[in-house]
Design a protein around this nucleic acid. Structure first.
Lengths: 139, 139
DNA sequence: CTGTAGTTTAGAGGCTTTCTAAACTGTTGA
DNA sequence: TCAACAGTTTAGAAAGCCTCTAAACTACAG
């Protein structure tokens, strides 16, 4: 049965990332990864958990988001100085940012041609190249 | 005399931006614009002002940074979820972000070739394209 | 089953930023 | 020159996001 499938999948995914599959982490992972690519704030994820009667504290949501980010299950997107977004798509890609609504939208990396990038300064290594296309409502 | 020159320049710049040239705005503008291109947080600018015995409140520093940003004298750079940076270079350009130190470094827009950008979604207009090259210390 | 290391939690606390409302100041017009 | 007013500044309170703490809980190895 597909729910069962997903459930064991999620547990395996956590285990192989070195994270103990606790009730909270399993529930949050399912919320995050069962709906395609998503861009969520901690507050939003916490809200969704509560809606589905998953008892989890905001502190755990923050801890989990950071742990997931560290093991490459999530990626943090910085576009709004007052809030962090977490992206379930960890493939190389870029973003549209809708300044009015605060929505993020993926741009596949093939849709942007980046060339002639300067070399990284001595003593540093490339961590990531972010391209953010900021748009705002007409008129 | 060059100080005089700068002083009246700053006042003119504020006036033509529609901002009353107050003691605080003049002092902050001089701190911001008399040292070439800079990337500063509100806290840093406030610190510099106090060091030079410019009496100004943190609230005014925030107000001023936002007003300057609105009239195009500054540009806000979002790279760190916990802090806003303000850039005195308002020309089209991009950034290196040194994740360890929190330093920002300009990349002239000619140094990056961006092509095949997707069209902006219906009902929106392009606000800006940010390219952020994140680097971290070797080892 | 039990011990223990890892995890969760509520609540306090930190930090950046914004708000409030009272005091102050640049400017305009008489 | 000066009064009057709109715009500005301010300290301090408060909001908002996030982290810390230390006590309770839990997955899991043995």
């Amino acid at each position: 049965m597909s729910t069962q499938r997903t459930y064991t999948d999620v547990i395996e995914r956590l285990k192989s990332a070195g994270l103990r599959p606790t009730r909270q982490r399993i529930a949050l992972a399912k919320l995050l990864f069962e709906k395609g690519n998503r861009h969520l704030t901690a507050e939003q994820l916490h809200g969704e958990a509560l809606e589905q009667s998953v008892r989890v504290s905001l502190a755990t949501v923050y801890n989990t988001l950071h742990q997931f980010t560290e093991c490459g299950l999530l990626r943090e997107v910085v576009v709004d100085p007052s809030r962090s977004y977490f992206d379930t798509n960890v493939d190389d890609h870029h973003h549209f940012y809708f300044e009015n609504s605060g929505q993020l939208h993926d741009i596949p990396s093939e849709s942007v041609r980046l060339a002639d990038l300067p070399e990284v300064p001595d003593g540093t290594r490339l961590s990531r190249v972010d391209v953010i296309i900021r748009v705002s409502d007409d008129d």
